[in-house]
Design a protein around this nucleic acid. Structure first.
Lengths: 335, 335
DNA sequence: TCCAGAAACGTTACCGCTAACATGGCGGCA
DNA sequence: TGCCGCCATGTTAGCGGTAACGTTTCTGGA
């Protein structure tokens, strides 16, 4: 008993039109050199004439490979990750893979849910943007035996491939840069407080402690980061520590928001207060004054993740590895 | 001859463990009320014990529904679309659908490619963020008979469902607002020049012509929008039309960039030059001075798109419709 | 001339799941 | 008691592809 026929054009339709078997059509489309020239042309013509769209689900079910990869990012609106996404996308597209993106909202539970979903979709690999996962997520991943790239931060215990930068070292470096520039009463302001932000904070503390400076000027909140929040945090800090001469903001959004607040208060930057951000988003190079920041190689991280993943997808053996992509301090007008 | 068994846990494994047939397991998971209480519990237990992950590809292949929907946006880094995405995602998740996102880079050819790909993945519907498509894309969509929502802008000839706002009317409204505020030598600056920007420009011209003002102060470029570009365009405009007293930027990024350029030039905003943006991104409410803009209901558009799509996915009949979600002029400090 | 081997295409049997129909058992009612 | 109908579960036959192996035809060298 035939089920409702979806009206969809299948290999069978093309095969009948051309007068061959469907496996031949399948071959003509996937391995053209294995089919005779004339037949291949006739099949191509029929394929176009019928507007054939292959059914990847069927193909994946049969072959065990879906030619797709899941990319999980914490946030879509955060342009930090859109850069990573581009790198990943570009690298994987070249190799014939489609990237399916999900966003976790900075929650490892949501990450777990997405891993489950994308496993159900039969992806061939994962690019994650963190090194922290739930136990169940780790079990699912290791059980699946799929290649996994953990990005953005570095870890001593990678699940598989790890591509990122040393967030703590970067935090320390910007702290040292501020100290070198002569600032002594340096504050830290952080939002969201995910693991990466905590690492940056730890690095900032490292730098200040090494210079025997006080690390008390530290204002944090679990609220998500935004321009306005940058202004609010800065206001609170100025109230608590009026003598502060510099602030390292855990990301560029906060730094820009803090800068706007300074403008509102007619506070001269960097004359009365120096500001530094983190990531090197476009805005840091556009504001007046331009913002000192830590430029993170997001695009490169994405590309490298893609490159290593493709190697594994094409059969390279699994061997846990860690790739430090570094960072760069950009001293600009705000310090 | 058995093919390589993937090590994957299937319904069959659970069925054997519990001692029933796999269709019963399938039912227990999808329609729990159709299976006896005791059996259901045993099946649930086995499912958890084995970390069963269903194979959606197989399910979709068999049932003809994948419970997934494609959302195509022009750009991921543009936060305008991340808001739309959230609305869509939320609405569809409630109904049990997974959103698969793709980005077209503002190219209808890339959109066509993605439509082809997502059809191959067997999505059950599309949310597009434009009303302009290639002929082939339109053919594919109409052939597929899948529900399609075209968002962001309005059209007189929707493929199916259309949810958006009247970009031209919005452009006209901000033009009129500037005129009402007393400005007479009003410029327009636009980047990318996609269809929506062209509509805003047309609206701006409508307003100026209606007030018998010159529309010559118009600076455009096909380059993608960015903060820096806003500064560059403004510089060029100030050079060509030193008498200009207000500028409507086609989006908030340009407006913010223009504002930064004014700060750099020590040009008082709004005293010497008024600025207006478009979209109502967070930044417009954070800068100093805050930026006048047109607030577009991006989140609402996404939610409404999801709501209408779900209705169709659940069987509502197809009837082309157009939904104007409006906009709001936010007069702030920059004018 | 003969035969091995490659090239070109076909047959069969699945991948994992579900729609549709089939079956057996039990309660309720005339 | 007998029959109807429903509830819980099973059987069969695919969905649209592809892996693996088979068959036929062609080619060329001993």
């Amino acid at each position: 008993m035939p089920r409702r026929s979806s009206g969809r054009v299948t290999l069978q339709h093309i095969a009948e039109r051309v007068g061959v078997s469907k496996i031949t059509v399948s071959r003509a489309l996937r391995e053209p050199q294995r089919v005779s020239e004339t037949l291949r042309l006739r099949i191509e013509e029929a394929t176009e004439a019928l507007d054939y769209v292959p059914n990847r689900q069927a193909g994946a079910l049969s072959s065990g490979r879906s030619l797709s990869v899941a990319l999980l990012v914490p946030s879509i609106s955060n342009s930090v990750f859109s850069e990573v996404q581009r790198g990943v996308d570009e690298g994987l597209r070249e190799a014939g893979y489609q990237v399916l993106m999900g966003h976790t909202g900075y929650s490892i539970l949501e990450e777990e849910r997405l891993i489950d979903i994308f496993l159900a979709y039969g992806v061939d690999g994962f690019v994650l943007s963190s090194t922290r996962h739930t136990d169940y997520a780790q079990r699912l991943l290791s059980r699946s035996r799929l290649p996994v790239v953990e990005t953005m931060e570095l870890t001593d215990t990678p699940l598989d491939i790890n591509v990122g930068l040393d967030q703590r070292a970067a935090g320390r470096a910007i702290g040292e840069a501020l100290i070198a520039a002569g600032y002594r009463r340096i504050g830290f302001c952080g939002a969201r407080l995910d693991y990466r932000v905590q690492q940056r904070l730890a690095g900032w503390e490292d730098a200040l402690k090494a210079a025997e400076l006080s690390t008390q000027r530290c204002q944090t909140t679990p609220r998500p980061s935004s321009y306005r929040l940058g202004g609010e945090l800065l206001s609170a800090m100025l109230e608590r520590w009026p003598d502060m001469d510099a602030v390292f903001c855990c990301n560029d959004d906060l730094a820009a928001g803090a800068l706007f607040e300074c403008q509102r208060r007619r506070l001269d930057v960097p004359g009365q207060l120096a500001l530094a951000g983190f990531n090197g988003l476009d805005i840091t190079d556009a504001t007046w004054p331009t913002l000192t920041t830590v430029i993170t190689p997001r695009r490169t991280i994405g590309e490298q993740a893609a490159r290593l993943l493709v190697k594994r997808l094409q059969g390279a053996p699994r061997e846990p590895s860690r790739h430090d992509m570094g960072f760069e301090i950009a001293l600009r007008q705000s310090t």
